[in-house]
């Protein structure tokens, strides 16, 4: 019984994390800060939710499958974030003039 309550608390925490991520996506004013913030907060929410579900379920094939999903997500989520940021960068999306000018001057 105690593990179910703990798991539900973890799920609630993950929802709070993801809500903050969505809030940041909706309110920030430039693309790069959105990318940086969401990549973090979303992964934290995902891991917390999966841990919560594993606590509720106990040790069974269900939670082993959840572990498998967690491993795949940890491998693939940074790849997609990186490829989006890389695509924006190579297409010429820059943030600020000064940083670029300093870099080319040195």
């Amino acid at each position: 019984m105690i593990n179910v309550i703990a798991g539900q608390i973890l799920m609630g925490i993950s929802l709070v994390f993801m809500a903050i991520g969505i809030y940041s996506v909706l309110t920030f004013h430039d693309f790069y800060s959105r990318v940086v913030i969401t990549a973090k907060v979303d992964t934290v929410g995902f891991i917390t939710l999966i841990f919560g579900a594993m606590l509720i379920q106990g040790f069974s094939f269900f939670s082993l499958k959840l572990l498998l999903i967690l491993v795949f997500e940890l491998l693939t989520s940074p790849i997609s974030t990186h490829s989006i940021a890389h695509s924006a960068y190579t297409s010429g999306y820059t943030i600020r003039k000064e940083v670029r000018a300093e870099g080319s001057g040195e």
Partner: peptide, 16 residues
């Protein structure tokens, strides 16, 4: 067809 838009007045790019 890539169109590049640049404005001399702004120093930072954001949504606005």
């Amino acid at each position: 067809y890539t169109i590049c838009f640049t404005n001399e007045m702004f120093r930072e790019v954001d949504d606005r």
